[in-house]
Computed example of a mutant assay.
Amino acid sequence: MNASKRKYLPQWLVHTFLWCAVFGLIVYPFFLESRSIPFNIVVKWVMAVAIFYFNYYYLVPNFLLRDKMKTYIGISIVLLFAVSYGLHNIFPPEMPKSFAPLVERMKERREARAPFRFSLMPVVSFAVPYIFAIMLRVYTELQRNENLRKTVEKEKVQSELQFLKTQLNPHFLFNSLNTIYSLSVKKSPHTSEAIINLSELMRYMIYEADKDLVPLDKEIEYIKSYVALQRLRLADSENVFLKISGDDSNKIIPSLLFISFIENAFKYGTDYQGKTMVKINLLVQEKSIQLYVINKIGKQRVKSENSGVGLQNVKNRLNFLYPNSHFLEIEDDGENYEVNLILNL
């Protein structure tokens, strides 16, 4: 199920709007008092923008985010003090003409001081956008890494699910071929029908089951075809029941999710005399699907290393696809084997 893509404004447009807003707040008092905008304010604003993006695109990625903390701090201190000192002396603050006597006294005091006269206020004014650049870049990198982690995790889950499905398909094909083989040995007239039935099953597996999600009604048709194929194989199929109830339209589920439980029931629900007892009940409700399968355990049940491969696979798939939204209960009392699965849609 693909999430709808959200539309965001381009990053450059957002940054342009913010910087224009900041500049507007700075020059607003001058417009309010009908004064001309001092040239030094425009220059310092441009320099603040330049420092911000130099820090954002170069210093933070190449030093701070690469664990070169001491180098980054050293470069930052030198940069802030150098820019602040240079601009403060090249473009000193402009004062209104009414402040002329005060300006003259300040000049006299500055001339009486050492040549390296300086105030910390310009450093603070440039440090604010500088620190904001750090915060924004670190947050952006954390967000990007989190998105990358989720993407890698999703791809890992998808690859694991695909691997489980590739394990399931050959397992199912092997069992189906055994069914047709048993019919051919018996020279059953239903052999050709079974081959056609298997071809329909394989068509579904090739063209539909490779999708992540399939319509529920197609999956149900697949189950019906499988049960029909098993009935052809069995000598006694009177106790094979398949009941499907509910509205299966407009619902989608992961492909091949139920077949392992049904396949397992037929595999172990037949004794050495060919007598079988398998009951399958699939109930489709508005917000849930319930699968109930019960089979009589055959007396001559043979366990092998590969037995239960399909069941383990479908358990893993359920944990991946329906975490905390499914219920699976399996009971084996030695005589009956019951599976009760509920999916919350």
Rank of each mutant, 00 (worst) to 15 (best):
A3W: 06
K7E: 09
L9W: 05
Q11D: 13
W12D: 05
L13W: 10
H15G: 09
C20I: 13
G24H: 05
Y28H: 12
S34E: 15
S34N: 15
K44F: 02
W45L: 10
F52H: 03
Y57R: 11
M69R: 15
M69E: 10
M69I: 15
I73L: 13
L80T: 05
L80R: 08
P96T: 14
L102S: 13
R109N: 13
E111I: 13
E111F: 09
E111T: 12
R113Q: 09
L120P: 01
P122F: 08
V123K: 02
A127K: 12
P129C: 10
A133E: 08
L136M: 04
Y139R: 13
Y139W: 11
Y139T: 11
R144M: 14
N147R: 12
L148R: 15
V152K: 14
V157D: 08
L164F: 05
T166S: 15
F174Y: 13
N175I: 07
V185P: 00
I195S: 06
E200N: 15
Y204M: 06
A209D: 05
L213N: 05
L213K: 04
I220C: 07
K224G: 05
S225Y: 00
L229V: 10
N239I: 00
N239L: 08
N239V: 01
I244Q: 03
S245A: 03
P254S: 14
P254I: 05
L257W: 03
T276P: 05
T276F: 01
Q285V: 06
Q285S: 12
Y292I: 08
R301S: 13
S304T: 15
V309D: 03
N313C: 03
N316V: 00
H326C: 08
L328I: 03
I330V: 10
G334T: 12
N340I: 04
I342R: 07
L345H: 01
